[in-house]
């Protein structure tokens, strides 16, 4: 028996740049795929969601106002930070999912590369998705994509890190702020990702991370009137209908995706704004 007891990490939520416990005081046990105890994760409540939305809403104008170059740099910085902790993240993935060390390391590399891929879109997608429109008449007319606002994400269950990054990176890169629900069964990677984010110059409140049950929280994400969009890629497809229905009250933009890297994931949470101005003197 070794003489030293391991110092275990307490996994908490990540709201407005801080790591609070759930206001509900509830937790749930996270086990390895073999059933061994790994940690007690916060079982976030709808009130945690509410607080996270308030933080995300407050942070949104500032994040959207940051230059595209700056947002891209910060996203790249997140990738740098993640790369540096590859081994730790790989180990955590293996523990939760039982994936081999090699597979887990691959997932971390994929997540890093995906962050880099999205980081580069920040100052390019608006030129591809915007347009100047040749209208009939003496008017200058152009369309620009703009961030939607506060977007929720229900991350995929299976790839605890890659699925999470694939959900939040496209939301953030355009200037949205996010409230993301980690994989319910394997939330530890997402919570550890918060530590990466916290050291990456991402302003407080831009990304908020909850751990908890999809079945409990997804309907609250859908019905929240101050969430503008929702990525439900992580939800089983038989639940998409009821979630979409619950999102109708504020005509929430709700989408699900199958591919991790596609510009459509960014554009799904952007609005097109068209501006007219006369040309004269």
């Amino acid at each position: 028996m070794s003489g030293r007891l391991e110092v275990m990490k307490t996994y908490k939520l990540y709201i407005n740049g801080a790591f609070p416990r759930t206001e509900s005081g509830r937790s749930y046990e996270i086990t390895s795929n073999k059933g061994e105890f790994l940690a007690n994760a916060c079982l976030a409540s709808r009130k945690d969601l509410r607080d996270a939305v308030v933080a995300a809403r407050a942070a949104q104008p500032g994040w959207a106002k940051a230059t595209a170059f700056n947002r891209g740099q910060i996203m790249y910085r997140i990738a740098e930070m993640l790369e540096g902790r590859s081994d730790q993240f790989a180990q955590e993935i293996s523990l939760q999912t039982g994936a081999s060390a090699k597979e887990s390391l691959q997932e971390v590399s994929d997540a890093v590369d995906l962050l880099v891929w999205y980081a580069g879109w920040s100052d390019k997608l608006p030129s591809l998705a915007g347009s100047t429109n040749p209208v009939t008449g003496p008017f200058y007319n152009f369309t620009i994509p703009e961030a939607l606002g506060v977007v929720g994400a229900i991350a995929s269950i299976d790839k605890p890190l890659l699925g999470f990054v694939a959900a939040v990176a496209p939301i953030l890169v355009s200037g949205n702020t996010a409230v993301a629900l980690a994989s319910s069964s394997a939330p530890l990677s997402a919570i550890s990702f918060a530590e990466v984010v916290a050291t990456s110059d991402l302003p407080n409140g831009v990304l908020n991370i909850l751990s908890g049950q999809q079945s409990e929280l997804a309907p609250w994400f859908a019905s929240h009137m101050d969430i503008d969009g929702l990525d439900i890629s992580g939800l089983p497809s038989d639940q998409h209908g009821s979630i979409k229905e619950a999102g109708v009250e504020n005509l929430k933009r709700i989408s699900a995706f199958t591919k991790n890297n596609e510009p459509g994931r960014i554009l799904a949470f952007m609005e097109a704004k068209t501006i007219w101005h006369p040309i004269g003197n």
Binding site: S131, N133, P134, V135, T136, G137, F139, N141, T143, A272, K273, T274, I275, W276, H277, P278
Partner: peptide, 15 residues
């Protein structure tokens, strides 16, 4: 749709 110094202008090329 933002109309600056004009209003209610429409065009097929304009989203």
């Amino acid at each position: 749709v933002i109309w600056a110094n004009t209003f209610n202008k429409f065009d097929p090329a304009s989203p």
